[in-house]
Amino acid sequence: MSEPEKDHGTVVGEDPNRRDFIYIAAGAAAVGAVGVIAAPLVSQMNPAADTLAMASAEFDLGKVSEGMQVVIKWRGKPLFVRYRTPKEIKEAEDVKLSELKDPQADADRVKKGKEQYLILVGSCTHLGCVPTFGAGDFGGWFCPCHGSHYDTSGRIRKGPAPLNLAVPEYEYLSDTKVKIG
């Protein structure tokens, strides 16, 4: 690179480093330009502003009867609202944390004083299928796609899923009304 370039009529004695500098500067500018052009082309695939602005959902818990669940759509995904029976709550609370793949106490997954209402994102943490209510070995949910079993707290107990069903952010607006998201 730093050899004198006779063919191009380089004046003898000219500093060859000057040509190297031009190569490097031009190369760096080209790389920078490609990066700047690529950034918006890549970024456009991320969620658009209207997708991000998806409104939070309000839900009236009075619609769920004991022992049942209601599925609502929230941010394109199903949301489980389950009214647990005292037996189901007890089952969830009695599990030793050491038995769990993703240890979390039942009390951390519900609001205090509202233990009967379990609100979860109904998307299997394995590959995103919708688990079936009431099925599986632990009385919670069973994912039909690849066989993950969840307990009555929505915690993963058996199968390929690595994590518990996610609890979304929500708050009680009144005694029976919740705002999710």
Partner: peptide, 13 residues
Amino acid sequence: LTWLQGGFAVDQP
């Protein structure tokens, strides 16, 4: 995953 789906779930994008 979010970048690929263009949102938080498989949807219009």
